[in-house]
């Protein structure tokens, strides 16, 4: 099986896309889980503020989502643009 330059570059781009999205998904998943866990704890302590706490949780999770979206963008760039 002869490997040509263009084929090798494409193979590396595919592997890179998979690893970028796969490894990039770990951090946001854990981080958003921490936010969610503490939001549940806070609602348990002070149920009157459930609305405010849910809103704060969603904003915090959205921010910690950002690195996952960067990974998605890089993966899509590797797949379709580069």
């Amino acid at each position: 099986m002869a490997i040509e330059g263009a084929d090798l570059v494409k193979a590396a781009a595919f592997l890179g896309a998979g690893l970028a999205m796969g490894l990039g998904a770990i951090g946001p998943g854990v981080g958003e889980g921490m936010v969610g866990a503490k939001a549940c704890e806070a609602i348990g302590r002070n149920p009157k503020e459930a609305g405010l706490l849910t809103r704060t949780m969603l904003v915090g999770q959205a921010v910690s989502e950002s690195t996952g979206i960067y990974s998605l963008v890089i993966a899509l760039l590797l797949l379709f643009v580069v």
């Binding site: 592997l15 896309a17 998979g18 690893l19 999205m21 796969g22 490894l23 990039g24 998904a25 770990i26 951090g27 946001p28 998943g29 854990v30 981080g31 958003e32 889980g33 921490m34 969610g36 993966a75």
Partner: peptide, 14 residues
Amino acid sequence: LCTGFGGIGPGIGN
């Protein structure tokens, strides 16, 4: 590899 690694974080986070 992508779905595999990608499932670790969300599983723990959930």
